[in-house]
Design a protein around this nucleic acid. Structure first.
Lengths: 226, 226
DNA sequence: GAGGATAATGACAGCCACTGACAGTTGACA
DNA sequence: TGTCAACTGTCAGTGGCTGTCATTATCCTC
């Protein structure tokens, strides 16, 4: 269903291209169905049928129902990691993380547009946050990402991840804050990219001050009422 | 299998006690089987059979296979929350969290001994950390706990969780650090309670300093090589 | 451009987690 | 002791996921 529209000539032979098309079509169909009628209410058979392949074929492309849900997310993460690696060594660790996030959000469109529209990605994100089974999967994936981040940060700072706990500690705090921002965004009403971008940034700004002890001298905090 | 040994007279009538016994027996059987032969390699039928009830009955006690895995964990968390609520208002937020953790670890025995030996709990913890499906579930549960913690902290500090991001940010960072410690412990060789207790404390000590920028002036860090 | 090697797919059977429905059993309590 | 309500077992069925094998489609070589 729907013309695949091969933008620029995709690499590889016919076999390769066909595979890519089925792969992307499965993602599109799955996310469309998930966001419309819910994750659990959608069966793998439905997805397969929408793309006109057998259920068995679906499982040859994706190890399980969860995997197809996070396929796009994975592309975004790859972009983020790439950007982080490219940050100048002079930047402080937290600053580098923050900058990489900024860049990742800024060109999310170009990173995924060949597969799905950004708007569907945003809707998917919201659906994930409101589906317990997917929240769990999302978190597990985050933890795996954290491990990579910690290694990257450690390398930048010429530290040994196993000998010095600081990279892991920083990354854990960073990720926690990112998740908190994502959750608040998903419960809000502004589903735009800029919205989550701004929210993320402001949350990151609190990471330092929030550790200190005397909160009774209320210094800042913008209203985040939902 | 095995005598249930009702220590002190458990409350309620016979029906109540019988239910409690089945409940605990299912947990024991499940954790024993999981830690011996692996989570995925153990079927619900096996667990039910070990306790001599039908599979259907298992699902009347636990919503799913995951739930039985975390039943004990839940008791420990309840203990932790209780302790946090009891901390004096004068303590700084992070200090209160840290103290509550200390206490929780200190009397973990008394909290769970009526159901399983601490040693089995420790083995279960390791199994969870090395089983992807359970890691995911564990994380989702952590997030739910975080929400409660944030509310508690906000109350202590007389803040509105929805208006001021700091409680959530602090708790996110705290939880991230706790998880990092738990993971490192599970990959190590010392399976004792004191071991994870110490590791947790030392990780928490890094939460402040790790945020700062200049890591090249290596100040501390004990060897955590595995 | 025919034909064999190889990769992708479909069809089918089967396992396991989980659920709904209904009937049988057992503890609670008048 | 009899009645009610709670608890349990049995059975049938759904959906995620896997192994196997025959079939189809692309690729590559001559």
């Amino acid at each position: 269903m729907a013309t695949p529209t091969p933008h620029s000539a995709p690499a590889g032979g016919l076999r390769e291209r066909k595979k890519q098309r089925t792969h992307d079509a499965l993602i599109r169909a799955a996310l469309e169905l998930f966001t419309e009628q819910g994750y659990e209410a959608t069966t793998v058979d439905e997805i397969a049928e929408a793309v006109d392949v057998s259920q068995r074929t679906f499982f040859r492309y994706f190890a399980n129902k969860e995997d197809v849900t996070f396929a796009v997310q994975e592309m975004v993460e790859a972009r983020f990691l790439e950007e982080l690696s490219a940050r100048p060594a002079a930047e402080a660790p937290l600053t580098a993380l923050r900058s990489a996030v900024t860049v990742a959000w800024d060109d999310i469109g170009s990173a995924i547009e060949s597969v799905i529209p950004v708007e569907l990605y945003m809707r998917t994100y919201q659906m994930i946050e409101s589906t317990p089974a997917l929240v769990a999967a999302h978190l597990r994936r985050s933890v795996e990402l954290e491990a990579q981040l910690a290694r990257l940060i450690a390398r930048r700072e010429r530290l040994d991840v196993d000998a010095d706990p600081r990279p892991r500690v920083l990354v854990a705090a960073f990720s926690g804050v990112m998740r908190a921002a994502g959750k608040v965004w998903s419960e809000g009403e502004d589903w735009s990219v800029s919205s989550i971008r701004e929210l993320t940034m402001s949350y990151l700004d609190h990471i330092g001050p929030a550790i200190e002890g005397d909160w009774r001298t209320r210094s800042q905090s913008q209203s985040q009422s939902r």
